[in-house]
């Protein structure tokens, strides 16, 4: 296996479905941050066959809510002194703002810059978010 040394302090985004790591790298804009980061692709995994992993050294302030939208099974491990101090399942965010747009072509948010929709997860078992302006359900797909 390709060796990447453990990080001292930072976060490890694990259980990313294989092939989606690059998209997360882009969505989190890791190329623009100063933090050192590596993307590991097609890592062998007992559970999934293969997965992607992102390791980020040092403090990083990024919006991790996007992770759950890519795959709710993604986990985020917070590392200090080379040890995991906290492990979080990404899960689906209840509220989302600014990550995607309302799909309703008649929605005011499509033409007015002052209207930024806040989306609320609809508890119907599908990954659907309701627009705070027009009420339309938007199915989230990256």
């Amino acid at each position: 296996m390709l060796e990447v040394t453990a990080i001292k302090k930072g976060i490890v985004i694990d259980h990313i479905p294989a092939g989606k790591g690059l998209r997360i790298f882009e969505k989190l804009r890791l190329d623009r941050h100063q933090a050192q980061a590596v993307l590991l692709m097609h890592v062998k995994s007992r559970k999934r066959g293969s997965k992607d992993i992102i390791k980020i050294q040092d403090d990083l302030t990024v919006d991790l809510r996007i992770l759950g939208l890519i795959d709710p099974g993604i986990t985020v491990n917070y590392i200090e002194n080379e040890e995991i101090i906290e492990k979080q399942l990404a899960g689906l965010p209840q509220k989302v703002k600014g990550l995607f747009e309302c799909k309703n072509p008649r929605c005011i948010t499509g033409v007015d810059d002052c209207a930024v929709p806040e989306f609320t997860l609809v508890p119907n078992g599908k990954i659907q978010y309701k627009c705070s302006y027009c009420g339309t359900l938007t199915e989230y797909k990256l």
Partner: peptide, 8 residues
């Protein structure tokens, strides 16, 4: 004509 305009 735009949905959500009165809310805005």
């Amino acid at each position: 004509p735009r949905e959500g305009a009165p809310k805005l």
